[in-house]
């Protein structure tokens, strides 16, 4: 009661200086809020513009034939079917390689590795891998897989290269997801007499699955959209048939887009944009899927 009692009346008598300062602060506050809002919306606007142009220009090209037929007449007509299939193959095999490697690495780092110089080194390597330009991956893939291991330009070489590219994303997101599993769940499992591996398999990974999936899907989107890594390792300039083994070359959407946009004279613009639309649609679709998985995960995780 006795604390900080004010003399009667002073509470409401406001200092004019204070009033002025407050008013100024409020104006500055509004300015910042408005300015930052503008910046944020301009990003949205930019994306909308890009997507708008692509959809506007590319939509007329989209047809059943475009999606299911190989290119004809020096790629100036026909479809992009082999490129779509090639990209799907590449993404599929990339995930097949990156998933076990990435999740395994994440499990090792979170559950087994004792904190020390080695784990710090591994983390540093992962961070740096994420920063390497993708064309370097392409050259590395060419050197290691195509030439040194003798895999030739093939789905296998391309997928391995892409897997290396997305490995940092997969490991980082998987690690985060695994770390987000409450320690008390691990302890509960261990206290019941489960081994470390049983705990990882039965408790940690199931709980982390949605988060890991998010990382995988983001990795897929990245793999689907990259051009440089596949340039020297798998992509075919023009190959109007489907591959029969993993040692075959394939066409791929990003490279095909590069080819039709820059390498072919008198190329109909709508085919270029059509190809871009399919690629962007695929990548955006995968990103949306990742967002949906995350959202469902958040809803499902009741506390």
């Amino acid at each position: 009661m006795g604390r900080g009692r004010r003399p009667a009346g002073t509470y409401w008598r406001l200092d004019p200086d204070l009033v002025a300062r407050r008013a100024r602060r409020l104006r500055v506050e509004r300015l910042y809020s408005w300015g930052l809002g503008l910046l944020a919306w301009s990003v949205v606007g930019l994306i909308a513009a890009i997507l708008g142009v692509i959809v506007w220009q590319g939509a007329p090209a989209i047809s059943l034939e475009f999606l299911t037929q190989p290119p004809r007449e020096g790629m100036r007509s026909g479809g992009i079917y082999p490129a779509i299939v090639g990209t799907l193959y590449l993404v599929g095999f990339t995930i097949a390689v990156a998933l076990p490697l990435g999740v395994g690495g994440a499990v090792y780092l979170t559950e087994y590795a004792r904190p020390g110089r080695l784990t710090r080194l591994i983390r540093l390597a992962i961070v740096n891998l994420a920063g390497v330009p993708s064309v370097v991956y392409g050259l590395f893939g060419l050197g290691l897989f195509v030439i040194f291991l003798g895999l030739g330009t093939s789905i296998l070489a391309g997928s391995l290269t892409l897997a290396l590219l997305i490995l940092p994303v997969v490991i980082t997101t998987a690690e985060e997801a695994i770390r987000a599993v409450p320690r008390s769940l691990r302890e509960a499992s261990l206290a019941l007499g489960a081994t470390r591996w049983q705990t990882v398999r039965e408790v940690v990974l199931p709980s982390a699955t949605p988060g890991i999936l998010t990382g995988i899907i983001l990795g897929m989107a990245r793999a689907a959209g990259e051009t440089a890594p596949i340039l020297f390792t798998v992509a075919a300039f023009f190959l109007p048939r489907l591959p029969v083994s993993i040692f075959d070359q394939v066409m791929a959407l990003p490279y095909h887009l590069f080819v039709v946009s820059t390498q072919i004279p008198n190329m109909p613009v709508e085919l270029q944009y059509g190809t871009a639309l399919v690629l962007v649609g695929l990548v955006t679709g995968l990103n949306l899927l990742a967002a949906a998985v995350r959202a469902r995960y958040r809803r499902a995780r009741r506390v």
Binding site: S184, E187, S207
Partner: peptide
């Protein structure tokens, strides 16, 4: 592992598995 089977433990916050 056998020791922990023989010595059960209950924790501060209820921690059922998400199963």
């Amino acid at each position: 592992v056998d020791l922990r089977r023989r010595v059960g433990m209950v924790f501060q916050t209820p921690n059922p598995f998400p199963k």
